[in-house]
């Protein structure tokens, strides 16, 4: 029947689109996550794996002629020799730095003895320290935790400044028509047109004069410049979505303007306003360039990741940092998806 065929057809197209969308978004993300868990050895493998591994299928061979040992790791159908040594601590160090496998010299000795006893390569299992990259990046590397706190502080201040100044602006743009209101909202748009990178240079001078150089607060001041404008648009969209009559009702029943704002408008707008702070958060949390110019000894996490991308040829460590950078952003995105309509529904430039 043609109807059934039509239904099947549209169902197939639907699933195809679904698969494409999910694939295009998730495939890079999966590879990215896997890289963040990859050891240096794995990072050089091609083709790369899409899911992370937990251990290596490996063999240890005793070379009687040279009296040393060779570690072989499975690659495709064969085993590939990756390290040949006779020294247990050298072997242990290789495992730690290249394979993310933590194995003490004494354990290595035991393996060596076993391999020596056998006349062929013995199978061994090397268990990966799964979160090794994260441990190295965050705990062993100096300053990462401090950078994390700097990021949080900068993001917090940015949210505060943008919400207070942008929120007030948004409310007034939504509720009042004044002489320059159109000029004002166009002005907010123009703010975003000037490249932020260029403004950082003269701003550094003011920041130094204000004795704020190299502080998260100074970063927040700069981040807030475009974000106040964005917050103003979004909050004005939110406030436009809340009926004036609700406010008028409160005032009819004797509430002052401020009380109305605090007890009626603000609670109604609150969830959407929280969601709108996502944009301020993301701008501060994700920026690395302004931080590059504005900080010296107190980098943010994003800047740290940015720097490691530039300095290291193996991307697994910076990827681990980037994953941590990504987590709070994802949480915010998860929240924001329920407020799309309120945030952008009444935005008009």
């Amino acid at each position: 029947m043609s109807v059934r065929r039509g239904k099947l057809w549209s169902r197939t197209v639907f699933l195809l689109i679904l698969a494409t969308v999910a694939g295009v978004v998730l495939l890079p993300v999966f590879y990215f996550l896997t890289i963040s868990f990859a050891s240096n050895y794995e990072a050089y493998q091609f083709p790369a794996k899409i899911f992370p591994t937990f251990s290596y299928p490996a063999q240890l061979r005793y070379n009687a002629d040279k009296e040393n040992y060779t570690l072989l790791i499975k690659k495709g159908a064969d085993f590939e020799a990756v390290k040949t040594t006779s020294d247990t601590s050298d072997f242990s160090l290789y495992c730690k730095s290249q394979l993310n496998v933590l194995i003490a010299s004494s354990e290595v000795q035991a393996l060596f003895d076993k391999a020596k006893g056998a006349d062929h390569a013995i199978p061994i299992k090397l268990k990966k320290a799964f979160f090794r990259n994260y441990v190295v990046f965050f705990i062993l590397a100096e300053g990462t935790m401090r950078a994390l706190f700097n990021s949080l502080k900068a993001a917090g201040w940015t949210i505060l400044i943008s919400l207070v100044l942008g929120g007030v602006t948004g409310y007034i743009l939504a509720r009042y028509k004044f002489r320059f209101s159109n000029t004002f909202s166009t002005g907010l748009l123009v703010v975003r047109m000037f490249p932020a990178v260029a403004l950082s240079l003269p701003l550094v001078v003011y920041i130094v004069r204000m004795n704020l150089y190299d502080t998260p607060f100074a970063l927040a001041i700069v981040y807030s410049v475009p974000n106040i404008a964005l917050t103003a648009w979004i909050t004005s969209s939110i406030f436009k979505g809340i009926s004036v009559e609700l406010e008028e009702a409160a005032m009819v029943f004797g509430a002052t303007r401020l009380k109305t704002l605090l007890t009626i408008t603000f609670p109604l707008a609150f969830p959407a306003i929280v969601a709108s702070s996502l944009y301020a958060f993301l701008a501060a949390w994700n920026d690395s360039i302004t931080a590059l110019i504005m900080t010296n000894d107190n980098p943010t996490l994003a800047l740290l990741v940015y720097r490691t991308v530039g300095s290291s040829t193996i991307p697994n460590l910076p990827a681990a940092g980037a994953v941590v950078l990504l987590v709070p952003s994802l949480v915010f995105t998860f929240i924001i998806k329920n407020y799309i309509n309120q945030l952008w529904g009444n935005v008009a430039l």
Partner: peptide, 10 residues
């Protein structure tokens, strides 16, 4: 949600 730095690595 991806920071530019993460997009770069990715």
């Amino acid at each position: 949600a991806f920071p530019p730095a993460a997009v770069g690595i990715l």
